[in-house]
Simulated scan of single mutants.
Amino acid sequence: MGWLHKMNAYFKEQLSLKNLLKVLLILLILYFLSLTSNVWMSWLTTLRLILTPFLVGFVIAYVVHPFIEFLQKKGVSRKIAIPLVCLGMLMLLIGILMMVVPMVYDKTTELINSMISGLNWLYQQYVEINENVPNILVAGIFQQITTLLNDTKSWLPNFSAILPQLISKVLSFLTNAVFAFIISVYVLFDFEKIRKTIFSLARTIDKELPIYLSAVNAEISGYLHSMLMLMAIKFIEYSLLYMLIGHKSAVTIALLTSIGLIVPYFGATIANFIGILTSLTLPLPNVLLLIGGICVLSMVDAYIIAPIVHSRSSQVPPLWTLLCVFAGGMLLGPLGIMISIPVFMSLRVIVNLVRFRNERYDPLPTEEE
């Protein structure tokens, strides 16, 4: 029961009128914030919509900048390297979309047709077993499922009902994407100047703040380097796997799988789903081999390759990863999911640095104390 005495002593020590007033003041502030949530939440939403393209542009520039530095070391002028890298990145993205979207659309139609054929075959077998006297309820269920699948198939090529909303969303997305891309180009041209300005402002706020910024930059740079290595490894793995089963778009699916690492958990899952969906027209042994290969490669990547590629400091526990992804998605949507892990790593390295500096510089207790 010693812990009860310790807890009681702790509360007696901390429980004072001053501390109670602080708690009450915090609770009062939270109460007023909840009452005015409709006002400031709308302001925050508007501010988020305004700042998102700038944040995306800065993130793109930060990720692309190492490639610019690499080309500069090879003797390529910065004025040439930036348009070259940006154009290559843009062409790669457009190429992937042009190859993946029609392929998924066609395979989805084929999948629905195969499901309808399979249901019809099952129903015929059922009718033969019951000597051409099927149960009315079972016949109705089969008919409803077949009608639902046929309606889905007829809906796929018909976008007339949702065309206005679709055009509006696509135009909004393209506008923000183009704006973010232009911002990233400007940031890349003035990257060193922006970096010096940030460190100068940080130094005016606190002399030790640039130390934390440097630590965060080193941590994120290491994470991005490891991520690029994992993307290359995953591209090679899945290219060989899809070629082994005879997939016609092996390279495209493998590239999509490797890029899916940008979005933790969800990206790779969606890419694997697309890979399995587009392989359902292959023979059954090939599909089973693909599913088994994806399971094996996922385990190997998660428990063998990733720990080797990532440094010990850049590893994030799975539960923290899920929490960060969920919180990032709730706050900022897809962008929040993508930056959730780097943000967590930044906060972690700051906390560790503060703790290390306190442990290092705080005076040790003397024997008398």
Rank of each mutant, 00 (worst) to 15 (best):
V104H: 06
C86R: 00
L171C: 09
V138M: 01
V133L: 13
D106F: 03
P157W: 11
S172M: 14
I116L: 01
L97G: 11
E110L: 14
P164K: 02
Q124D: 10
K79N: 04
L148Y: 11
Q165N: 02
L93G: 14
Q144V: 10
M115S: 13
I145E: 07
V76Q: 00
I141D: 01
M89K: 05
G75F: 01
L149K: 06
K74M: 11
T109H: 10
D106C: 09
L92H: 10
L174V: 15
F70P: 00
M103S: 08
D106H: 08
V100H: 00
V76W: 05
T147S: 08
Q144T: 12
V104W: 04
L119H: 02
S160L: 01
S117T: 12
K153S: 06
R78W: 01
L93P: 00
L163G: 03
I82Q: 07
V178I: 15
K79T: 10
N176A: 00
L111C: 14
I94S: 14
L93Q: 09
P134V: 01
I129W: 10
P134N: 08
D106K: 10
I68D: 03
M99G: 05
S77M: 06
N120Q: 13
A177Q: 12
L166G: 13
S154Q: 10
N176R: 04
L111F: 15
S160W: 12
I94W: 12
I116S: 05
G88F: 07
T175D: 03
E128K: 14
L84I: 04
L171P: 08
K153A: 08
E128N: 13
L137A: 13
I145S: 06
Q72N: 12
V170W: 08
L174H: 00
N120M: 08
I136V: 12
Q72S: 04
E69C: 09
A81C: 07
D151K: 02
K73F: 01
S160V: 05
A81L: 03
Q144E: 14
V127Q: 09
W121L: 06
I96K: 10
E110Y: 01
N130I: 09
F159Y: 12
K169W: 08
V76L: 04
K107R: 05
L71Q: 14
S114M: 15
M115Q: 15
P134Q: 03
E131M: 12
M89P: 00
L174M: 13
N135D: 15
W121K: 04
K74P: 03
S172Q: 15
N132R: 13
Y105H: 06
D106R: 04
I116W: 07
E128C: 02
L111E: 15
V76F: 04
N120P: 00
S172P: 06
Q144R: 02
T147F: 07
V100P: 07
T147I: 11
N158M: 02
P102I: 03
I167H: 06
S154M: 09
F159K: 04
S168Y: 07
A161V: 11
W121F: 07
Q144P: 05
L87H: 12
L87M: 13
L84F: 12
L171R: 03
P134L: 04
F70T: 04
Y123F: 15
I162F: 02
Q124N: 07
C86I: 05
V127W: 00
M103L: 15
W155A: 09
S160R: 11
M98Q: 08
N113G: 02
F70G: 09
F173G: 02
I68F: 11
N120W: 09
Q144K: 03
F67C: 01
L166W: 13
V85P: 01
L93F: 13
K169Q: 06
